[in-house]
Design a protein around this nucleic acid. Structure first.
Length: 274
DNA sequence: GCCCAGGAATGTA
DNA sequence: TACATTCATGGG
């Protein structure tokens, strides 16, 4: 294990953990890390990531620092994005203030694909439960300095499962099983997507049974870092109808509308909680 | 009992 | 193209 300490602007672990883009952030020893400490799982890896003010502390496997810095999207200037919001848009200005510590994670593509297939017509606590159950039942058991954990199951591991009952997937189990089989057979190739233009990658994702427009955009945004992707779920739909008369001009934020969407999503849910 | 959840597939006109 | 229905599952 090794430790990396650094300062990151516009990074609030608590906000990210509750932003609906990651389903395997487990709160860790909150008394020792009042600013937020999480065992962050992504694909086959995990790290302990903690916060004290603007200082972020990453404890991870030897040689994995760069991997986790990339995961945290260290190269993006979120202050510039927030500052690009026109003052005339009172709603969005406020939303970005509320969620000023959000970042778009560079998460494992396969895990994002499966997780967001599971997310359709579902709620976040149930998505977390299903994803955790998939890992525990089908992933590899591993141990590190913080104890045991389970990797996210590979396509092979998911395809090898005789059935996916008992994971709480509901009717979505056939989507997951079908995709896992197609990936194993080589009929679906995911590694090629990272090189595709976003439109091509979106079309490719949408050709997969169980992936529609919204889920494809979530995968593009969180799985391959395409910040222009703008997922519209029930929360975003509600905001657009109420604040923008049914039409939001995402093209005003060309190349990073997905970040704007995340501010909207977080702020709306934060407001609904109180 | 109903409605909702980070929707999508399918059927119908 | 544009709607309507159906799909598991659990919490409010």
């Amino acid at each position: 294990m090794e430790t990396k300490r650094l300062h990151i602007n516009h990074c609030n672990l608590q906000q990210i953990a509750d932003s609906g883009q990651c389903f395997r952030w487990l709160p860790y020893d909150r008394t020792a890390y009042p600013g937020g400490g999480y065992l962050v799982h992504d694909g086959a890896d995990r790290a302990l990531i903690c916060q004290n003010g603007s200082e972020i502390v990453i404890q991870c496997a030897d040689g994995a620092q760069e991997r986790w810095l990339r995961y945290l999207d260290i190269g993006t200037d979120y202050g510039r994005i927030i500052n690009s919001i026109p003052e005339t848009d009172v709603y969005l200005t406020r939303a970005a203030q509320v969620g000023a510590g959000l970042r778009i994670l560079h998460a494992d593509l396969w895990e994002m694909i499966v997780s967001f297939i599971v997310s359709q017509n579902n709620n976040i606590p149930r998505i977390k439960a299903s994803v955790s159950a998939m890992c525990r039942k089908l992933g590899d058991r591993r141990e590190d300095a913080f104890g045991e954990y389970y990797t996210f199951p590979t396509a092979q591991q998911l395809a090898a499962a005789d059935n996916l009952q008992g994971l709480g997937l509901g009717y979505r189990d056939k989507y997951v099983a079908g995709l896992a089989e197609n990936v194993c057979r080589g009929d679906v190739r995911l590694d090629s997507m990272a090189e595709m233009p976003t439109e091509d990658a979106r079309r490719y994702l949408r050709s997969i049974y169980g992936i529609g427009e919204k889920v494809a955009n979530c995968i593009l945004l969180f799985g391959i870092g395409r910040k222009e992707a703008f997922p519209i779920d029930t929360w975003i739909r509600k905001i657009i109808d109420r604040e923008y008369a049914g039409q939001f001009h995402a093209e005003n934020y060309d190349g990073y509308a997905g970040v704007i969407q995340q501010y909207m999503f977080y702020a709306e849910r934060e407001a609904a909680r109180h």
